[in-house]
Write a protein that binds this DNA or RNA. Sequence first.
DNA 1: ATCATAGTCGTCTGCCTGACGATAAACACT
DNA 2: AGTGTTTATCGTCAGGCAGACGACTATGAT
Lengths: 252, 252
Amino acid sequence: MPYDPSAFPPFAVTVDLVVLTVRRHALCALAVRRGEPPFQGRWALPGGFVRADEDLTQAAARELAEETGLRAHDPAVPAQDNGAHLEQLATYGDPKRDPRMRVVSVAHLALAPDLPAPRAGGDASNARWAPVEELLQQGGYGRDGEPVAPLAFDHAQILADGVERARSKIEYSSLATAFCPPEFTVGELRRVYEAVWGVALDPRNFHRKVTGTPGFLVPTGGTTTRQGGRPAQLFRAGGATLLNPPMLRPEV
Amino acid sequence: MPYDPSAFPPFAVTVDLVVLTVRRHALCALAVRRGEPPFQGRWALPGGFVRADEDLTQAAARELAEETGLRAHDPAVPAQDNGAHLEQLATYGDPKRDPRMRVVSVAHLALAPDLPAPRAGGDASNARWAPVEELLQQGGYGRDGEPVAPLAFDHAQILADGVERARSKIEYSSLATAFCPPEFTVGELRRVYEAVWGVALDPRNFHRKVTGTPGFLVPTGGTTTRQGGRPAQLFRAGGATLLNPPMLRPEV
DNA sequence: ATCATAGTCGTCTGCCTGACGATAAACACT
DNA sequence: AGTGTTTATCGTCAGGCAGACGACTATGAT
């Protein structure tokens, strides 16, 4: 099968981003409002075209920086204290997913600590953090009473896949720390797990588990009382990336 | 950011396949010999262009059928007794991965039972099952004494990613049964795990574990002695797709 | 001073796993 | 027919880990 330039159809290739964070005990995703058709005025995942000289990961990192100001974590530098975790999620290429032309989208998943307000070209009303349940529910009404329209394109599916990836990946990796600030307490980490999984965890067993897993947490020596109650030790993420044995997600 | 057709570069989109099977106690992958430049004469993963009206999964299933005659498993029909497991693996889009033009390849992973000979356009010398270690080793000499050239393009990386996916996925899913014929014994399933992981497992503990996991195996009532020794019960894959608790891969 | 809140340390029990002995049922020899 | 070899299958036991939960500690709020 020779590579005849006329033998293959041209595609547009984009990256779409599932950017997740934990705000007010809820797992939230970044959504941007579409300014032009199709799906004008509807919420969508941030994304854009891959440039001619760009790797897919570079394109995703560039879009992430444009939308949030976050730098992507360099996987070669663990325990970096700024920047978000970024990884490829999956690729979506249904011929009809974009009504205008053939677009293949390489979706990426980014995990970030709680951030200030999002920005999308400086216009705050065109970008927001929304709880993932709200973005994924079909129809109905959101918390503000406004009717909820489904996400544009196949972005509901992409978001659902990204959420599922995050939920399963914090089981066997230290990725939950990507939702935390550089220094955090065991309780803050536990609230991340509770928000992502949507369950309540026993604080005592959770404490025993995470402090007993070698390389997961490194004490910094400091303490904080920002959550109220007894001061809690502060930790940084340790060098371990894979947790063995894993954290166990409680049964449904 | 409007969709100006002149605002994005055109890409070629291909699917590449990591087709794995277990032959003679070794994890093997399907490789095809390239008939034209670049990398003419070198081994590569099977693959081809995505057509204009095709979904990515359809394209992968079509290539799989062309190369092996296998029909892909329909995920909606569990416990299907013919066809291979097929899932998307990852997407590779380095600007220089193909020296001729910008190609984005959506790699897929297929798992199949031991098959007769592969076919590639009817020419058997242009397709073969090779142990993955042989395909992944850089330089050196293969079992037949011929010098081993690395796989074409970035296919060594793709193959390595596919093998790693398979190794981890049989831990927590029933996917190892995809390497087995429709009816199989516990010993045959154990040899799949041993080949994929490259370890030896205790037959007694393995038997206890897999027969004690609800929904993993369903006895068919028959027995076989094709492995020699005492006749073994035959099983089919049960409805369970996720194993909880998972199979544990022994430490390095 | 008392209460509420959150963090931390222990205990106990049940389940799962790894290590390994023992038995069973076939085949290949002699 | 007997003996050895191979593979399958059942059982036992000890160690480790997780869930349930009691107890104590250290802060701020009333």
